[in-house]
């Protein structure tokens, strides 16, 4: 989770992010950030997600659980 939080902070261009942070609370949570998460899911979790699926989650923690579940299923 710690590594994921650091990666998300980098994508969102924030000093840090927390598990309970709402993604739509970040001004940088836009379509390009979503694409960065799709690319991260592929390279780090070897899981394929659509931008639509990524946009569907509410918090940073929800996103972590989505990607982790995708990695296990893969």
């Amino acid at each position: 989770m710690d590594t994921f939080l650091k990666e998300m902070a980098d994508i969102l261009d924030e000093e840090s992010v927390r598990e309970n942070d709402r993604l739509d609370g970040f001004g940088s949570w836009d379509s390009l950030a979503v694409l960065s998460v799709v690319a991260m899911a592929d390279s780090r979790y070897h899981a394929t997600f659509s931008a639509r699926e990524i946009r569907g989650v509410a918090t940073v923690g929800d996103l972590y659980r989505l990607l982790s579940a995708g990695a296990k299923a893969g």
Binding site: I11, D13, L32, A33, L35, S36, A39
Partner: peptide, 8 residues
């Protein structure tokens, strides 16, 4: 092509 922001 690869659609990604430049920083990533």
């Amino acid at each position: 092509q690869s659609v990604l922001p430049a920083k990533d």
